[in-house]
Design a protein around this nucleic acid. Sequence first.
DNA 1: GCCGTTTTCGGCCCGACTGTTTTCAGTCG
Length: 592
Amino acid sequence: MSNEQISKLLRNVATAYTIKDEAKFRFQIIAYQKAADSILNNSIELLDYYKDGKLQDIPGIGVSIRGHLEELFATGNVKYFDWALKGIPESVFVLIEIPSFGPKKSYRLVKEFKLTNPKTVIKDLKKIAIKNKIASLEGFGEKSQKDILRAIEEFREGKGKTTRMVLPFAAEISDKILTYLRKSEHMVDARTLGSLRRMVPTIGDIDIAVASNNPEKIIEHFISYPYIDRIIEKGSISASILVSGGRQIDLMVQPPNAFGSLLQHFTGSKNHNIALRELALRKGLSLSEKGIKNLKMKNSKILQYSSEESFYKTLGLEWVPPEIRENTGEVELSIKNKLPKLVEVSDINGDFHLHSNFPIEPSHDLGNNTIDEMIKKAILLKYSHIGFSEHNPSISKHTKDQMYNLIKARNDQIDHILSGNKSIRVLKLLEIDILPSGELAMDDRSLNLLDFAIVSIHSVFSMDKTKMTHRVIKGLSHPKAKVLAHPTGRLLNERPGYDLDWEKVFKFCKENNKALEINAWPTRLDLSDQIIRQAVSQKVKMIINTDSHASYQMENMKYGVAMARRGWAQKGDILNSLGYNKFMEWVKGGEL
DNA sequence: GCCGTTTTCGGCCCGACTGTTTTCAGTCG
C-alpha cells in the first residue's frame, strides 16, 4: 500500500468519527488527520519504516496508530478501522474529495438520496442537483444546490486545488497578480506567502498578503483582476478567486502595523503555526494574523507587529527561515537560538550539470545553447568554475573509438573557447548512464578524458530496491564517477521515482568520497527535502546542479538551493560552495 | 490519539467566509 492510500485510510477514519460523533471523538479526529497529513508528506515509503520497526519515528504516529498500521502491513486489514468505518457508505469518502464537501455535507447527501454506489456517486449527485431536488432539503437552498453543481464541475475539470503546480509556474502566476495589485493606490506592500514562500516542490494555490489601511478597496481591486474566472469568496479582509487556467488565489489584508503577524500566519505551514500557537498558549498568549493577545490581562488590546522578526522575538524565538517552517524541530531550536545557518544562493560558486548543444551524438537529449553561450551565462552568474555534462555518446550507435573521438572533440572545443577567456574555469565532465548491470555506458579510455563523471539512471526504472541500490552503487564505484545525478529519478506530477536503500547509499558515498546531486530542474527537485535532511545528518556531501539544457535555465539554481534549505543543508554540506582549488581536491579524492 | 522547557496527565490554534439561519454549522487554511 502506498503512503497516499494509507493516508487516505486514516483520513477516512477521521471522517467517520466526525460523522458519528464529532464532539466525542474531537481529539481522535485531530490525531488521525495529523497522522494522515504526516504520512502523505513523507517521501519515504511507510512499508520501509514498518520493516525497520520504526513506524513510531513518524510524527503523529503513537502507540495506538502504530499498532493499527502494523496489523495493516501484516494482514492487509485492520479490525479497528473496520469498526470505525462501519455504517459509513464508501461513497461518502469519494464525495469528500471535492473541495467544499466536508464529512457532514457528504454524509447527509449520500443518506438523503441513497447514493450508495461509490463509482457513480458524483454523477448521481449531479443528476439530482439538476433535477432541483437538493434545494428543498432542510439546511440547503437554491444557492447551495448551485454551488454543489459548480463544485462537481470544477472538480472534474481539475480546477482549484485539485492539481498542483511546479514552482516556476506558480511563481509566474503570482508575479502577474502582484504586478496588478501594486497598481492600487491603497497598496502599501504585497508578498507571496504560503507554500510558494516555503518553496514546497509543488503548489496547490497561491497565497498573497497585502498591507493596506483600506482593505475594502484592496479587495475590490483584487476581484476586478482582468483574468478572473470567478470569485470564490469575498469578505472584508480576505477573498479568494479562480483565475483563468483554473488556479486559485487567496488574498488577505492587514494594516501595515500588523503586517508582520500576517506574514507569519499566511506563510504557514499549518503545523508550524499550530506549534507556535501552542507554545504561546503555555505563556498565556494567543496568536493570530492580527497580532498577539495577552490572555492573562482582561480586555487587553491585541499587540501589533509590523515585522515577522519582532513577532517571533516577542515569543522568545529566533526568526525561522520559511523553508523550514514545517514543525519538524525548528520551533524547539529557535527557542534555544540554535537554528542552522542554511546554505544560500550567494554561496554557490558553480554549476556542474550543463548540457551544451555540442553535437556529441548523445544517448538522450542535447542542449540548446553553445558551450560559449553557457559560459557567458555562468560569468553573468559570477561563477568561478563550472562543468559541462552532456549525455555520453549513444553506446548503441557508436564504436568505442567513435565515442572517444566525439568526447575529445568536445574537450577541444572547450579548450578553444577558454583560450580566449580566462575569467572562469571549466571542467570536462559527462553525464553517463548507469546500465541495468551497473556498468557505465563508456569504456575507461574515454572516461579518462574527463575530470570526473556524473552518473545517473535513464532506463529500466522498475527494478526493485535491492537491485537498484546495487546498480547505483556499482555505477558510482568507478573511480571517475563522483556524483549521482537526480538520485531518485522522480518527475513531479508524472512518476514517483525508484526506491533506494538510503542507508547503504549514504554509507557508500561517505566512505568513498562521492556526492549526491540535488537536481534543481523544476519537475525533478531530486533529492527531496526529506532525504537531503537525512543525508545532512549523516554528513554526506551534496552538489546542487541545474541540469540546464539552455543558458536561461541556469537561473533555476535557486530552486535547488531552496530544496537544500528545506533539507536543513548548510554551506559546508554543499560542494558548490567550495572554491576551485578545494573543489578539485575533492574531485581528486582528497578528504574535505 | 498524541505529546512533553510546568505536564506520563491533562491539555489540544485561530479566525474568515458562506448559506441558511435569526445565532450558527460547515468548510477552509
